[in-house]
Design a protein around this nucleic acid. Structure first.
Ligand SMILES: [Mn+2]
Ligand SMILES: [Mn+2]
Ligand SMILES: [Zn+2]
Ligand SMILES: [Zn+2]
Lengths: 138, 138
DNA sequence: TTTAAAGTTGTAATAATTACAAAGTTGTAA
DNA sequence: TTACAACTTTGTAATTATTACAACTTTAAA
């Protein structure tokens, strides 16, 4: 069960926990990620927040997401060919992209069927992307 | 069991089969892929072949790989953050990247544990990337 | 208040890939 | 053989996501 909504207090607590000072921009970007669970790109975040944060810089969005990834608050998703998406849900799961409508769906992972790694190799993390046609597009 | 070596005749036959006219460049690039099973990038291929094909253009390498992917002769591998690798082995398998030495290893797939896709969704293809430390780097 | 560190911003640089048009090659019909 | 159209290659320019960087602003401590 994931946290679907999040209040201001929890946002602040999360940043605090991770040792990140809670600037206005960081709070807004993190809040955006909790409210928009569509695996948004930098472009998405920048465009949507610009109307509220009139002076927001794209560099700040890049900087902030980089920081969040380092601190393990979000995960970078490499499902697209030419840009990165970000996921506030850092629990182990994989992704399905509909090649018709472009929507990204979360998939549960068949936990630990993974381990077809040779003896002596150490897995740090993994990603799985499935491409196909979604229910709505058939 | 994969074809590990390939002779000139087989290269020509493969191109023929796929309806690709066997230009010198295409033959050389395809041959390179059969001989260098390291999941090379456009840059790798271009640099290595340039000594033999003095006038080779990087655009030709891009064009040719695009054609090969369309015709299902090679697979594009998105395991790197900022460039594409190519794989002459189109059989279903996944990849392990050592975050120390950068080497890419092939992994057998635990066939059909995949299908944790919801009813009504149709899988077309999928990719799985595992990142970690390889045997040699421990 | 002073001051240094941290954070934000805008612009420039980087780098992989694509677009495009000119030049070269090949195969075929006259 | 020659002429011509289709195909292929090439070099350069354009595109685009991301990073580098320096100036400016905010924050927090002394
Ligand atoms: Mn997700
Ligand atoms: Mn492979
Ligand atoms: Zn769809
Ligand atoms: Zn290694």
């Amino acid at each position: 069960m994931n946290i679907k909504k999040i209040d201001h207090q929890s946002i602040l607590r999360l940043l605090e926990e991770k040792g990140i000072s809670p600037s206005f921009q960081r709070i807004k970007i993190l809040e955006y990620l909790f409210l928009n669970r569509t695996h948004p790109s930098v472009e998405d975040i920048y465009k949507d927040l610009s109307s509220e944060l009139l002076t927001l810089s794209k560099t700040t969005v890049y900087n902030t997401l980089k920081l969040f990834v380092e601190k393990n608050i979000v995960k970078a998703i490499g499902i697209e060919k030419d840009f990165v998406r970000y996921d506030i849900d850092i629990s182990p799961h994989s992704h399905f992209k509909c090649i018709k409508c472009g929507k990204i769906y979360d998939l549960k992972i068949n936990e630990e069927k993974d381990n077809n790694i040779d003896e002596g190799f150490k897995k740090v993390y993994s990603e799985k992307y499935i491409y196909g046609i979604c229910k709505n597009c058939k």
